[in-house]
Design a protein around this nucleic acid. Structure first.
Lengths: 351, 351
DNA sequence: GTTAGCACTCTAAATACCCGAGTGCCAGAG
DNA sequence: CTCTGGCACTCGGGTATTTAGAGTGCTAAC
């Protein structure tokens, strides 16, 4: 284990920090352990290889870098990356062409509900050449627009409801008795009048309250409607996400091990773990980063995750991000994820 | 190129056929080129290695087997596999436990429309330990149950329609003018009364006819309804499929080459090519098989595809199948795909 | 037609080898 | 006290070389 000791930039002098920074940049750039020789050629670092070796030895003692074997250069450890992204990184602003692409793709018209999310995900992967992920807006916080019941065979009823981000959800419920189309219509009307515009979480509360009320007070129709609503919104819906560009990950040497790759892709289709991981970003404002083992999920041990939450009408509803090897161009990815999250929010807002 | 010469079982004597059969079985079983030595130990084949070598040389001349290099055994070519599955294969009936699993999974209750398809796909991959695929029922042949319009901002209208296999589709259309909720309701009522129960292809026809009619004859409401229907069903919808167990494919040595694997997975997320390939099975009754390069898609060069169409109410609407390495246990996979297709049809019928 | 025998070929694994990159440490210079 | 040049050392990766084994094709005999 890398241990719990966190190194801050206070613990190191200017020179060591700069050296670490260039080492990490160098390693990110060409993917090979960096030796004292190449570092000595840095124009701002007027030191001999020997001195650099001394500094590197210190950095290694602090667990910021390590070398795969004696006669190789050094590469950053997780803590090294962490210190790098926390305090050393100089983020690059988006290139205007990228911004254009983002805006035209996201803010332009799209023809299906989940479509914007798809586009966002694809954008993330296309631009970064890694994998892009966007969680669907959380059902809990999202508000109901419209609900509808359609009779199927017997007591089976198809419920369709539309929520805020124009998501259309559907589900089959089993009612306790047979309802006529008219009754279903009536129930839907009632629910629409009472629940429309409220969050699903709120609706679940209201349903509970209604059920507790003195039954003599309310009429049968309302009772029926509420019980159908209960069936509809009963269990917590499983959240979901849109992933694109997974195949981009197959190019990276750190994922060339088939077993690793398999585990990663299994995690992707499992969804559970990934959702859980992404959910941790819902609370935090702005960009959040998991580097390597920090995520706590084995499958992501050799990956980093750059994420940001996005909001509809100032309410945080989802998370998006980029998944790639630990060795990624953080200085470009971070601002990109940041902007994409904001634009996605904007795109979903205006409706 | 392996050439267009197709070898049939007429062109070979009993012994050669039996030899080919055991060779293929052997190769499928342990994945290594089969030599004359092991073959000579087959109890039904009382021949010396030398004789077997002579027979194998003949088979090689006919392009049914080949050896990767001089001092290796032989393995089947695509034509060899073809002859094997066409005439030599002895299919194994399903094990009853597998049948149970199938029935209980597919015929049991499920709570969402696309859910059965998911389950079928997962079943295919779980049982075969390869990848399972199920195309969504083709929209063209599927019949409309119900349509609904929901106003969004401005002239944007969310259309929701439900089709046969209980699929719920939705789409945003842009109308030429602003419609009131009442008008939308009226339009939906009209369309439901006229179009419900007809296939989408038929509906598209009808729309065209209606548009051509003398406009003075019909009232404005009907005109509006039809024009909205036209927008809804205008372009051919992109078909789609459900894939599971892709990660199973990562275990096979024939796909251990990262470049190949990447191309395969890219084909999966591209969807286009795969759909096109699967569509070719819509016409054929029963199980169809593509072996290696037969599919015509580079990405599938080292894979085989065992497919079958499935039907709702005796109308072929989709295809399902299994994707795996050319070297797969056809004798088990074929009956399994066959039964799954029938059960899936049955599961979708009853509603 | 079938078989035994034999020379031949080719692969895969093991072994040895060298080269270069990079290190750690030490002793001397600034 | 800090930096640097020098040097011995380590290790991985690439290139031969060798060896063992599997399997073949061919030929001559049964």
């Amino acid at each position: 284990m890398s241990g719990g000791v966190v190194i801050s930039n206070q613990d190191l002098n200017e020179r060591s920090l700069y050296l670490l920074k260039t080492l990490v940049e160098r390693y990110i750039h060409d993917g090979q352990p960096v030796g004292s020789r190449v570092l000595s050629k840095d124009p701002n670092l007027k030191l001999s290889p020997a001195t650099i070796r001394n500094v590197m030895a210190d950095l290694e003692d602090m667990g910021l870098i390590h070398s795969p074997h004696t006669s190789a250069g050094r590469m950053p450890t997780v803590s090294g990356y962490r210190l790098f992204v926390n305090s050393l990184l100089t983020v690059k602003p988006l290139e205007s062409s990228e911004l254009d692409q983002l805006q035209s793709s996201l803010l332009t018209e799209h023809d299906g509900p989940g479509d914007v999310l798809n586009k966002a995900s694809r954008l993330l992967s296309d631009v970064t050449k890694m994998a892009g992920v966007v969680t669907l807006p959380r059902r809990e916080t999202v508000t109901l627009r419209h609900i509808e019941f359609l009779p199927m065979s017997n007591t089976r009823v198809l419920v369709i409801f539309v929520t805020d981000g124009q998501e259309v959800h559907n589900k089959i419920i089993h009612t306790d008795r047979l309802y006529s189309p008219a009754e279903l219509q009536q129930a839907a009307n009632y629910l629409n009048s009472v629940f429309a515009g409220r969050s699903l979480a709120k609706i679940r509360d209201l349903i509970l309250k209604e059920m507790e009320q003195d039954r003599s007070q309310v009429n049968q129709g309302m009772m029926d409607a509420v019980s159908m609503a209960r069936l509809t919104f009963a269990q917590q819906p499983k959240d979901d996400y849109v992933l694109s560009g997974e195949t981009n990950l197959m190019g990276f040497s750190e994922l060339s091990d088939m077993e690793r790759l398999k585990q990663l892709f299994e995690a992707f289709s499992q969804k559970r773990g990934v959702i859980h991981l992404l959910d941790q970003c819902l609370l935090a404002e702005g960009v959040q980063i998991f580097i390597g083992e920090e995520s706590g999920y084995r499958a992501f041990d050799h990956c980093s995750l750059v994420t940001s939450s996005y909001s509809i009408n100032d309410e945080v509803v989802g998370v998006l991000g980029v998944i790639g090897p630990t060795r990624m161009a953080y200085e470009k990815v971070i601002p990109f994820v940041d902007v994409t999250a904001k634009l996605l929010g904007a795109a979903l807002n205006s409706k």
